[in-house]
C-alpha cells in the first residue's frame, strides 16, 4: 500500500470505488495521517483539524467516482482537503481578521539578503510551525498548499479563487508575514535593505 509520495494505490482505489469496506479502511489508514497534518497546518486548532480530516474522508466517499485514475491520487486528495479547509475558513470569515488590511497596506520591500539568511539559519522547524499559526488564514493556506502538499500554482489559484498571476504575490506576502512572525514583528520583512 502506498502512502503520499509513493506509488499510487490503483487497485485499492478501484476496490474502494466498488464499495469494498476493507479497501476504504486501507485508504484511510494510509492517507489519514498526511491529511490530518495538512489540516493541522492549515486550520487554527487541533480540533478543527480532526473534524476536517473526518469530513474530508466522508466527502471522499461521495467523490471517489469523480477521481481521474490517470492523475495522481495524492495530489487529488490534497486538492479535496485544500478545498474543504479553505471553505471551512472562508465560512468562518477568519480571513477577514488579518488579510484584507495586510494585503492592501503592507508594501513589498526588498529584504536584506544577509539578514534574511541569518533569520532562516537561526530558526528551527518548531519555531516556524508556531509562526505559521500566527498567520492569516489565506497566507497559511497558501504556504501549506505550496510547501506541504506541493500543489501547483494553478491548483492553488483554483482552491483560493484567485487569478493564477496572483499566486506568486500571495505566496510572497505570506513569506513576509511569516518572517514578521519569526522576528516577532521586527522590520525585516518590511524592508531591511531600504
Amino acid at each position: 500500500m502506498s502512502a503520499p509520495g509513493t506509488m499510487e494505490p490503483t487497485e485499492v482505489i478501484a476496490r474502494a470505488r466498488a464499495g469494498d469496506a476493507e479497501a476504504w479502511g486501507q485508504l484511510y489508514h494510509d492517507y489519514a495521517p498526511a491529511i490530518f497534518r495538512f489540516c493541522r497546518r492549515a486550520l487554527p486548532t487541533r480540533e478543527d483539524a480532526e473534524d476536517a480530516t473526518m469530513e474530508v474522508f466522508m466527502k471522499l466517499r461521495g467523490k471517489l467516482n469523480q477521481y481521474d485514475t490517470t492523475r495522481s491520487f495524492t495530489a487529488w486528495l490534497y486538492k479535496v482537503a485544500a478545498n474543504h479547509c479553505w471553505d471551512s475558513l472562508r465560512r468562518r470569515r477568519t480571513r477577514q481578521d488579518k488579510e484584507t488590511g495586510d494585503l492592501e497596506n503592507v508594501p513589498l520591500e526588498h529584504p536584506d539578503p544577509s539578514q534574511l539568511e541569518r533569520l532562516i539559519e537561526q530558526r528551527t522547524s518548531e519555531e516556524v510551525r508556531k509562526a505559521l499559526e500566527k498567520l492569516g488564514a489565506r497566507a497559511r493556506m497558501a504556504l501549506v498548499m505550496r510547501y506541504y502538499s506541493d500543489m501547483s500554482y494553478d491548483e492553488i489559484a483554483d482552491a483560493l479563487g484567485v487569478r493564477r498571476a496572483f499566486v506568486g504575490v500571495v505566496l510572497l506576502r505570506a513569506r513576509h508575514e511569516l518572517r514578521q512572525a519569526l522576528e516577532g514583528g521586527s522590520a525585516l520583512a518590511a524592508g531591511g535593505a531600504s
Binding site: R37, S125, E126, V128, Y147, Y148
Partner: peptide, 24 residues
C-alpha cells in the same frame, strides 16, 4: 536565502510532530 526558506518551510510542515489523534 529564499531557497533555504522554502526548504525550512517544507521541513517544518512535513515533520511528524503530532501523532494521529486516537479519535481519528
Amino acid at each position: 536565502a529564499m531557497e533555504r526558506e522554502s526548504r525550512l518551510l517544507t521541513r517544518a510542515m512535513l515533520e511528524e510532530d503530532e501523532p494521529l489523534p486516537s479519535r481519528l
